[in-house]
């Protein structure tokens, strides 16, 4: 059977791969959206923090023999702690200034981090093997699915919806949302808003590192792996609506699917399609698909 001249098996497999890439977009744009929502900081260091996640997992395995599963938990905590340090020492001083200053600072931090890793490890990248438990693949009839790719979807969706639940349905989430709306009032009610902000930034950064560990067995672990991805992820956040939690998750997955289809029908456009959609969305709904005007 063929759909638009493409065999349906090929189309099915491309949709699935689109969903896998969309999982990365979703988890990264979610972190960005949370940080922007509460801190009003456009975190340009997100790509570098994603790269740090992958690199620390690789270092842990090759230098200390720490396996994938431990790294999956420990790495986001380590990189998240680094985020907390950044927030406490630098970002904190910029909240009252224009967005642009936060963007410039985090962009500078990203360049420094990438420079350090490039200097230490070179540019060719390092290989991280798929953990034994998830090695191999299953035949789905229309394609051969590596088990690890299936795991990416499961892990990413679990973390994304877990985060959504925490923010939308729990008391901590309520404080966070209230802190975004009116920090002075929440502070007056006896809630430690600065601590909340620090925690939020650390959590957003930890999400990036989590995505980095997930990516390590799939892509070469390379100092520039984040900088290639981050621009697309920014477009995802803009399309979804800056700061919208559900918006970033749904848009991330959706754009992954659309990009996957573009790779079959017109591969040359696959790196541009996200930006074309961004332009259209901004013209029609300037606040993004899920944003509030």
């Amino acid at each position: 059977m063929e759909i638009f001249g493409i065999p349906s098996a090929l189309l099915g497999s491309q949709l699935l791969i689109g969903l896998i890439n969309g999982s990365f977009y979703a988890i990264l744009s979610l972190g960005l959206a949370i940080i922007f929502g509460l801190l009003n900081i456009i975190n340009f260091a997100h790509g570098a923090q994603y790269m740090m996640g992958a690199f620390i997992a690789w270092l842990a395995l090759t230098k200390f023999g720490i396996n994938y599963w431990v790294a999956l938990i420990a790495t986001p905590i380590i990189v998240g702690a680094f985020g907390v340090f950044l927030e406490r020492t630098m970002l904190r001083k910029l909240y009252k200034l224009d967005h642009l200053y936060g963007l410039l600072l985090t962009f500078g931090i990203a360049l420094i981090i990438e420079g350090i890793f490039r200097d230490q490890f070179g540019i060719s990248g390092q290989s991280y093997d798929v953990p034994e438990l998830l090695a191999g693949g299953v035949s789905l009839g229309f394609m051969f699915l590596p088990i690890y790719r299936g795991w990416i979807i499961v892990a990413a969706l679990t973390v994304c919806f877990g985060t959504w639940f925490m923010i939308e349905k729990t008391k901590l989430g309520a404080y966070l949302r209230a802190g975004t709306e009116n920090p002075q009032m929440v502070q007056a009610l006896g809630i430690n808003v600065p601590l909340l902000i620090t925690f939020t930034y650390g959590y957003g950064v930890a999400l990036a590192a989590f995505a980095g560990v997930l990516a390590a067995p799939v892509f070469q672990v390379n100092p520039l792996m984040g900088s290639h991805l981050i621009i697309v992820v920014f477009a995802v956040v803009v399309i979804g609506g800056m700061g919208s939690i559900m918006g970033s998750i749904v848009t991330g997955l959706g754009l992954g699917l659309i990009e996957g289809l573009t790779k079959v029908f017109y591969p040359e456009a696959s790196s541009v399609i996200v930006f074309v959609i961004m332009v259209i969305v901004l013209l029609v709904r300037p606040a993004g698909l899920f944003g509030r005007t």
Binding site: N21, K263, P267
Partner: peptide, 20 residues
């Protein structure tokens, strides 16, 4: 043949086309 964007990171779509 399939022309992929430069630089790319995920090649699975293109590889599956090559496989097909």
């Amino acid at each position: 043949s399939v022309a992929h964007p430069f630089p790319g990171s995920d090649f699975s779509s293109f590889l599956l086309q090559a496989q097909a």
